[in-house]
């Protein structure tokens, strides 16, 4: 082969209309971007910062800062009502979150495998618990649970509270898992099944890993909704099993909250943050596992 050199004019990027953004402009944009990001995160945490400041205030007067004091932190232990409420909250929310995440994932897979029209109808129903006014949901759940009372007279308490929390947390899990399911390649599951993998195993080994980001987001949201619910919890609890929100609302009706409540909120936030950072550092040190949710 002979090579014939042809002198075509070579177009530059500029001639295509491409213009290099000057380096300083890029830098400014970059800085602006991170400033805005941090600003948004700061505003997300603004109320938490105020709570933290209030928890460190030596004075119980919340509109002015006196001096730094840690007295409200050990004082949490001296508040038996607060302690009980905290314990109840943890118990209810952890059970509700775990169960809602597992069930919600299964349900979402089930709903996804329905025909499109059917699925849309059920997904509309799925939105009702999120949309309905809390007090309406709380009331109607209570009435439904009451129908069980002739069979189980002492049903109201932890059990009904967990059931009520499942009622409004499962929809959040489904809402988060569904978009992920739509992104999965349908051939993937078919392939697995054709290869003789049993359906349940295929679901756990093929499908669940593919949608785990959605599952995790759903779990986070379920926990978030559950840990701070007041109205629905109020109507569906019983036998003195009050969670933290019910207790807080009950106190501000007539009395003054102890600053130890602020201390607890701050601790919850701090512990989670520190825990996350520690986990991250430890994991990086070990250089094991690339993904958090690895099986």
């Amino acid at each position: 082969m002979t090579e014939k050199r042809i002198d075509y004019p070579v177009a530059t990027l500029e001639e295509y209309g491409y213009r290099e953004t000057p380096a300083y402009v890029k830098k400014i944009i970059k800085v602006l971007k991170s400033v805005l990001t941090y600003l948004v995160i700061f505003f997300l945490y603004l109320s938490i910062i105020v709570i933290a400041i209030q928890s460190l205030n030596s004075s119980r007067v919340m509109s002015a800062f006196d001096h730094v004091s840690f007295q409200w932190y050990p004082n949490i232990l001296n508040e038996p009502e607060l302690m009980t409420a905290i314990k109840n909250t943890f118990l209810v929310s952890s059970i509700a979150t775990v169960v809602a995440t597992i069930l919600g994932t299964f349900f979402a897979i089930g709903l996804y495998s329905l025909e499109k029209k059917r699925r849309q109808q059920w997904m509309l129903m799925n939105n009702v618990p999120i949309l309905n006014a809390d007090i309406v949901t709380g009331f109607s759940l209570m009435l439904m649970f009451r129908l069980l009372m002739p069979l189980f007279p002492n049903i109201f308490g932890l059990f009904t509270l967990v059931m009520a929390h499942l009622f409004f947390t499962i929809p959040y899990v489904i809402l988060n898992v569904m978009p992920k399911l739509k992104e999965t390649d349908p051939n993937l599951m078919d392939a697995a099944l054709d290869l003789g993998v049993r359906p349940f195993k295929a679901m756990l080994k093929v499908l669940v890993p593919a949608i785990k980001a959605g599952i995790f987001a759903g779990m986070l949201m379920a926990l978030t909704m559950s840990i701070d619910d007041f109205v629905i919890s109020y109507f569906n609890t019983g036998a003195g099993f009050d969670n933290l929100s019910v207790w807080i609302y009950g106190v501000i009706g007539r009395r003054e909250l102890t600053p130890s409540v602020y201390a607890f909120s701050t601790l919850l936030t701090l512990f989670t943050l520190v825990g996350l950072v520690l986990y991250e550092t430890l994991k990086n040190n070990k250089k094991k596992g690339k993904l958090w949710l690895r099986k």
Partner: peptide, 21 residues
């Protein structure tokens, strides 16, 4: 003594009326 908490008379009322506890 087992205590439950509420923040208004109206909630007391609905709580008793509902007979859940």
């Amino acid at each position: 003594v087992i205590q439950s908490i509420a923040d208004s008379n109206e909630l007391f009322y609905s709580k008793i009326k509902s007979q859940t506890t």
